[in-house]
Amino acid sequence: MKLKRDKISEEIPTSSMADIAFLLIIYFMVTTTFAATRGLDFSLPKDDQDNTPLVDKEDSVLIEILVGGVLIVDGRAMPLDAILEYLKPKLERNPRKPVIIRPNPDAEYGYMVDVFDELRQAKDKIDIEVKNISIPTQREIDMFWY
């Protein structure tokens, strides 16, 4: 008697491949997040008390940020968009003029970012770069401010 043999397919079964692929697509679509991965960069000075250059308050421009976003530049209240025009003649005389940003501890962080963003745009707006922006921390102010 001749036994009947099951015929084995020589091909790899691919019928479920599309299903698996679509499941993977759904997984990636759900887990993918287009995150906000851009921001303003700033380089930190080395925390070295011997080599950190001390900035003379008289030789610099001091921008104080009060609660509510009021800006006091060298003792005078000033709107944000007037800062660069105020700085322009000073920077033309001394391109490395230090600009110190000193936010009040209770002021909102967003106002500090606004001022920093404005200063970083000096090259585009007044055609001269603010090369020396300093944001001292409270500890540094307690140690070095006079």
């Binding site: 921001g39 303003l40 700033f42 930190l44 970012v113 921390t137």
Partner: peptide
């Protein structure tokens, strides 16, 4: 301020302020 101060003390080189 306290975070930036900690990063300065830790000798971090660069900070990005996410915006």
């Amino acid at each position: 301020d306290s975070v930036i101060d900690a990063l300065k003390q830790a000798r971090a080189e660069k900070i990005y302020l996410l915006s």
